Simulated assay, not measured.
Amino acid sequence: MIQHFQFKNMYENKQLPGWTFSFYFSGTKYTGTYHKDGRIEWTGPNPPADKEEILKKQLHELMLFHVYE
């Protein structure tokens, strides 16, 4: 489960899409960029291959809730 999820706009003009995010999963901090097309670019360590799809799904849900509410 994702813990301590945070995100912020990449640009000062908040009308432009693009966000940075961070969260903890299993004691490891993950960071990345969430692009307007839903693409996720990891900027820190990549999650384990067997957990990456689950984390991406949870991240999409969180971004939809917080950004596109």
Rank of each mutant, 00 (worst) to 15 (best):
M1V: 09
M1G: 10
M1S: 13
I2S: 01
Q3R: 12
Q3L: 10
H4I: 02
H4A: 08
H4L: 08
F5T: 05
Q6L: 12
Q6Y: 04
F7Y: 15
K8F: 05
K8S: 01
M10Q: 11
M10C: 07
M10F: 02
Y11V: 02
Y11D: 04
E12M: 03
N13M: 01
N13S: 03
N13F: 03
N13P: 00
K14M: 01
K14F: 00
Q15W: 01
Q15C: 01
L16Q: 08
P17G: 13
P17K: 02
P17T: 02
W19F: 05
W19A: 02
W19N: 01
T20H: 09
T20F: 10
F21R: 02
F21C: 02
F21Y: 05
S22R: 13
Y24E: 15
Y24A: 09
Y24V: 13
S26Y: 11
S26I: 07
G27L: 09
T28N: 11
K29P: 02
Y30P: 10
T31M: 13
G32W: 06
G32F: 14
G32A: 12
Y34W: 13
H35N: 15
H35I: 03
H35D: 09
D37V: 10
G38V: 08
G38F: 08
G38D: 07
G38A: 11
R39F: 10
R39G: 13
I40P: 08
I40D: 11
E41A: 15
W42Q: 10
T43G: 11
T43F: 05
P45E: 15
N46Q: 15
N46W: 10
P47S: 04
P47I: 11
P47N: 12
P48F: 07
P48Q: 11
A49T: 14
D50P: 01
E52V: 14
E53K: 15
E53I: 06
I54T: 10
I54L: 14
L55H: 04
K56P: 06
K56H: 07
K57Q: 13
Q58K: 05
L59H: 04
H60Q: 13
H60P: 04
L62M: 06
L62Y: 00
L62D: 00
M63D: 05
L64H: 08
F65L: 13
F65H: 04
F65I: 06
H66Q: 08
H66W: 00
V67H: 00
